[in-house]
């Protein structure tokens, strides 16, 4: 088991390294090959020649690609200095680069936005797991009856409706028409936990509705399969109460496959929920992604990409470890 964990951690490091290589290649090499000037991409079209030269030196854009990559890695691990003669900008580790467009370091900029995305993703995740799994289990137990049909129809709506539709419509109804909720926004948890929650409630529900729909369908399918397993029949033959048959024997194996899906969903959401964040005007990682793409702000695009990759890889690792914890066949083999 120990060897397994170590091997997995080793895999994580390798994967992340490959991700940096690919991202680096795409963002630094591709512009070069297509003839556009990376320095220009960095500062924007309005910069004059002197500024461009300064940037070029500062970024070492004239160095060979492997030197650039080396420096980039070095920045990630120990930090680096952008040296352009008299003025030196120090970028502490982990240095994700420096955005000249907004004149700030990428790392603090992203870290600043992380709590928004974290709050949104985790809050929504709790809601959709409870809602989706609950609805799915009810649906499986009432297969073919009214409850099942209602859940599955709602789920179909949830999967099909885009988030900017459900988001805007519900904001219009609950915030502006009925006035039950404050307009969505972000208040730091440490400042006012209650406002943090009420302000995020609508984004949570909207985002959770989308995912809960998928989870309800998945849970229903998994539970139906599990409940037809031989060991469920054995549990009944032992004389267990139906709630133990379903709650103890059924749920545990019925929900195990959901771990994978949940890990990946949460992992990718932590990299930024672009649609939800923009719909509700939340300044999180997703919103940062969109803005940086609009402004062609390469260092930030690179930064959010690495962030997203990091979360997904870590989520994958956690999923595998959870599997081993839940399923003795994985753990003991």
């Amino acid at each position: 088991m120990f060897a397994y964990v170590v091997r997995r951690l080793f895999n994580v490091v390798i994967t992340l390294l490959v991700v940096t290589m690919v991202t680096f290649g795409v963002f630094f090499l591709v512009p070069k090959l297509t003839g556009s000037d990376p320095a220009l991409l960095y500062v924007g079209k309005t910069a004059d020649a002197a500024a461009l030269d300064g940037i070029r030196t500062k970024l070492g854009l004239d160095d060979p690609i492997y030197v650039q990559y080396g420096k980039f890695l070095q920045g990630l691990v120990v930090g680096r200095d952008y040296d352009a003669g008299p003025d030196t900008t120090h970028c502490a580790a982990p240095c994700f680069g420096y955005s000249f467009k907004t004149d700030q370091e990428v790392w603090p900029y992203l870290i600043d936005r992380l709590p928004v995305t974290l709050s949104l993703a985790l809050g929504a995740a709790i809601l959709w797991v409870i809602g989706g799994v609950g609805a799915g289990v009810i649906s499986a137990l009432r297969k073919g009856r009214a409850a099942d049909r209602i859940v599955m129809t709602t789920a179909l709506a949830g999967v099909s409706l885009p988030i900017y539709f459900t988001g805007l419509v519900s904001a219009a109804i609950f915030c502006y028409w009925l006035g039950w909720l404050p307009p969505p926004g972000y208040v730091d948890f440490a400042v006012n936990p209650l406002e943090w929650a009420t302000n995020l409630l609508l984004p949570w529900i909207t985002l959770a509705f989308l995912f809960a729909a998928t989870y309800a369908r998945l849970t229903r399918a998994n539970m139906l399969e599990t409940l037809s397993e031989d060991y469920i029949r054995t549990a009944r033959a032992k004389g267990l109460r139906e709630r133990d048959v379903v709650g103890k024997h059924g749920l545990r194996s019925g929900l195990t496959p959901l771990i994978t899906v949940f890990g990946l969903d949460l992992g990718s959401l932590l990299g930024g929920a672009i649609l939800t964040e923009t719909t509700f005007n939340l300044r999180g990682l997703g919103e940062a992604t969109l803005t940086s793409i609009r402004q062609n702000d390469l260092p930030i695009i690179l930064g959010v990409t690495l962030f997203a990759a990091f979360f997904i890889v870590i989520a994958n690792l956690v999923v595998d470890l959870l599997y081993a914890a839940v399923d003795p066949r994985v753990r003991l083999s």
Binding site: R233, A235, P328
Partner: peptide, 11 residues
């Protein structure tokens, strides 16, 4: 039951 592997809960 017939197949004790599938008839016992794996977890």
């Amino acid at each position: 039951f017939q197949d004790p592997l599938s008839a016992m809960h794996p977890y």
